[in-house]
Design a protein around this nucleic acid. Structure first.
Length: 357
DNA sequence: AAGTCGGGGAA
DNA sequence: TTCCCAGACTT
């Protein structure tokens, strides 16, 4: 038996003993695998479980998703972050309806043309749903292979990827068991054993084949690009209160959370004197210039982060004595309606802080 | 090839 | 607290 076979058998055996009974592993239709994989991109499984369940309940199939709207899909995706994924899921569903009558194709070339499906998601769908012999290459697998094969190239370097793909082609071309299981085994190994820090090599089913482990260098791999420096940001929100309503607006061209609904706000950045406003024209919100409010109050600042921005959120509550006119980007809503509009975690944090105040 | 986009869990 | 990372798209 060659090493590829041993790796396959050891991994599958380990997976059968240790796999988690995630709900999204029960019904492996291409649609559910697609949505699940996209929801799990760049996020921890535990954090994604409830939002994913909710999304699949609201949109149980391609057709229901395809006929929805961007705003509703983003709200169904709330809590998961990277909301372009939600918009791309909608685009993907529309594309599937238009070109495939809602039925998933089963080739790599066709799948990656669908919005939101890249090489990772295509390989996941092909192996899990169609038993195609193709390896997925996500962050987990890259980390494992960097150690297993001792790849000292920077992760995502073209030669790093080539080395991984060459190994996977050899492994999967001679696979005897289920290729979807083998892919999931790799990823779950990355979550539980071959972790970013302090991998648990003693309990690793393939440590006998791991070159990094032989050299005791598993902790220095994979090699990553030096990360972008954090930027400190102060983000000021205005909760405008008039009778029973609150003013929210669409962030069409703001620096954060584009296309989300939120409270009128502006950000100030370190090393910059220029503030970014969530409203296009400062005259839209005359309260900032004139004293149109009866009383104001501030909440305790809240910490938040968006990619490399370290944000302190400041909330000002203003009780107005006259209403600011609506336009398409400004909306007065009551407490019950507002939760339908607030999608991003940052905004929900602000709203909760206000409610608990 | 590089920039962008959220969020929470681990250390 | 700080650090870390489970892709795809646009330019």
């Amino acid at each position: 038996m060659n090493n590829y076979s041993k790796i396959e058998i050891n991994l599958i055996e380990w997976f059968n003993k240790n796999k988690e009974p995630w709900f999204f592993r029960k019904d492996r239709t291409p649609y559910k695998v697609w949505i699940s994989e996209v929801a799990l991109h760049q996020t921890r499984i535990n954090a994604a479980l409830e939002p994913l369940k909710r999304f699949l309940t609201i949109y149980p199939n391609v057709h229901s998703l395809a006929k929805s709207t961007e705003e509703k899909v983003m709200n169904a995706f709330r809590g998961l972050g990277y909301y372009n994924r939600a918009k791309n899921l909608l685009r993907g569903a529309v594309y599937l309806e238009k070109y495939y009558d809602g039925i998933f194709p089963d080739t790599f070339e066709e799948l990656i043309k669908i919005p939101s499906i890249g090489s990772y998601t295509a390989a996941a769908i092909l192996s899990i749903c169609f038993q195609k012999k193709i390896g997925v290459l996500d962050g987990n697998v890259k980390r494992i292979l960097s150690r297993l094969l001792f790849i000292e190239k920077e992760i995502n370097d073209i030669s790093f990827i080539k080395t991984c793909e060459k190994f996977q082609n050899s492994l999967f071309s001679q696979i005897k068991l289920n290729s979807g299981d083998l892919n999931e085994a790799f990823m779950e190994l990355g979550q539980k054993i071959c972790t970013p820090k302090n991998p648990d090599c003693d309990n690793c089913p393939i440590s006998d084949f791991c070159f990094a482990q032989k050299k005791n260098k598993q902790n220095i791999l994979p090699i990553r690009k030096t990360k972008k420096e954090n930027i400190t940001v102060d983000w000021h929100f205005f909760i405008l209160h008039y009778e029973n309503k609150f003013l929210i607006q669409k962030y069409n061209s703001f620096c954060f959370l584009k296309h989300h609904w939120g409270f009128p706000s502006f950000s100030s950045f370190e090393n910059s004197n220029e503030n970014k406003y969530s409203f296009d024209n400062i005259n839209e919100l005359t309260f900032l210039k004139k004293n149109n409010y009866i009383e104001s109050k501030s909440l305790k600042p809240i910490k938040h982060s968006i990619t490399h921005h370290k944000i302190t959120m400041h909330t000002n509550i203003l009780n107005l004595n006259k209403v600011i006119k609506n336009n398409e980007n400004l909306l007065w809503v009551n407490e019950n309606e507002i939760t339908k509009y607030l999608t991003a975690s940052a905004m929900i944090k602000v709203w909760r802080a206000f409610k608990n105040n």
